[in-house]
Nucleic acid binder design. Structure first.
Lengths: 159, 159
DNA sequence: TCGTATAGTTAAGCCCGTTTAACTATCAAG
DNA sequence: CTTGATAGTTAAACGGGCTTAACTATACGA
């Protein structure tokens, strides 16, 4: 046989595909419920990851002009989801952060996963449960590494 | 200790969160490269899952009016990503299918996962590899179940 | 066969998100 | 202090994507 490796890759790929689909459907619902566009949700999640960002970073991340972001930020500030204030370290720059409401919304978005993850965990036997813990611990570390290289705007900003 | 179960749920949740984020970033890139909106990508993926659909189903799935879909379909047909033809079984209805190009595009979208999934698999030992195969096999079955209930438009259409 | 329900299209109009271009304010280097 | 780069804003204009409303064409039940 040509190794378990290929089989594992297949399984993992399928797993990723399925979870991604479920997530997409949930996100769609979430966006409609809260009257958010994909760009809005994307921005809120980005700001959440960054902790705090500025117009330039966000523009890079979204792949649009600063002008576009400036205007979008207007709207998100109007809806009380984010705050925009002068950066004391560089008064040209604005600090964009999640407001209390915005943070709450992001947390609520994360909560949608809690609807199906426990079901998944429940499908394993006690013995597998233990193995799975170890395995996911390792893979999560790896995923974090992969993720590091994925938000260059954030790391660049924190130099 | 209060059981491995909670720990597993935590790990799984983190895993889902990380993969989702990676996927989102890749999808964003993909959409920009191919000049697709979120709705477009969403529609193509939906049609792919359904095999073939019609205006009504797609409208239900996207949560917009039939008129909107009819117009979006115009554009996707113009770009040669999908085909629209009369349903021989009900001549009021149109069959919306992926074209060769559209199918290729969807496959290309799936391929983005192939960039990081092998890395993930490589982070496990031989022993864990085997365990992981079993575990993912089980969880994938469960995920398929969960997914079943997630595209009501598709099942409804195939009654 | 008539009436009604269903599938989809078309047109008018609206708003959102985008771009470009011109602008202000601040910083940093010489 | 001046010069040039950088951060962001504003305004005008455009297109996409959405809605509503009116329409055509087909199906189906009484």
């Amino acid at each position: 046989m040509h190794g378990k490796r290929e089989n594992l890759i297949e399984q993992l790929n399928q797993f990723a595909g399925l979870t991604m689909h479920i997530n997409m459907v949930h996100n769609m619902q979430f966006m409609q419920e809260h009257d958010l566009s994909f760009t809005h949700l994307n921005s809120l999640l980005f700001i959440h990851r960054a902790g705090c960002t500025n117009i330039n970073c966000l523009a890079d991340h979204l792949g649009v002009t600063k002008a576009a972001v400036s205007q979008m930020v207007d709207r998100l500030v109007d809806s009380d989801l984010i705050s925009r204030e002068e950066d004391p370290l560089d008064r040209r720059s604005k600090l964009i952060c999640l407001s209390k409401d915005g943070e709450g919304l992001v947390q609520k978005a994360f909560l949608t996963r809690r609807r199906w993850v426990p079901d998944l965990a429940a499908s394993l036997t006690k013995a597998q449960e233990e193995q799975a813990c170890q395995i996911f611990e390792i893979m999560n570390e790896k995923l974090k590494e992969i993720q590091e290289g994925l938000d260059p705007e954030i790391s660049r900003n924190h130099l």
